[in-house]
Amino acid sequence: MVINHKLTNDATSYGWGPVIMHWFIALAVIGLYPLGWYIESLDYYDPAYKTIPVWHKSIGILVAVTLLVRIVWRLFNKPPSPLPQPAALELAAKVAHGLLYILLLITVTSGYLISTADGRAIEFFNLISIPALPVGIENQEDIAGEIHFIVATSLILLAALHAAAALKHHFIDKDSTLKRMLALREEAE
């Protein structure tokens, strides 16, 4: 078992580019979801009120950028072909992966639309201002807020299923699905 030194995907393995992006988004989603709940619980008098929401929004923007790079990458550099498994499961995996991308896109977009609803920019770690869209809709912050919560909750549930499926491949099927995503490959390049 060796670390894959290649940046890009080939027919049998993931390059470390997509692998890093996958795990960054995974960690961010796992972290941002409870952080969102925590932010909901903060009142104005809390000392954390000025810092935690900035982190949530800034990490969210990093996720959005990574997600876009990942999608474009995927278009030009196909992931390795799926490992053999029953057709129904292969289809289920395909649907789940597509859905994970869609839910991620909606979550970051709706989050952006909450904070920019009144034309204010989002501060990215107090380094750059991400501007708002030139147009908005009535009660955008409330509508985007509802969507953000529902879709993020769906995302975390689907991600849990995704993780469970990966563990099933690793421990029950004993195939290299999970190892591939850790940029590990069988001996001999």
């Binding site: 929401p53 009144d118 912050e141």
Partner: peptide, 11 residues
């Protein structure tokens, strides 16, 4: 209150 995030929070 002329601030979308605060409006959402207060509502």
């Amino acid at each position: 209150s002329n601030h979308a995030e605060r409006n959402k929070h207060i509502r």
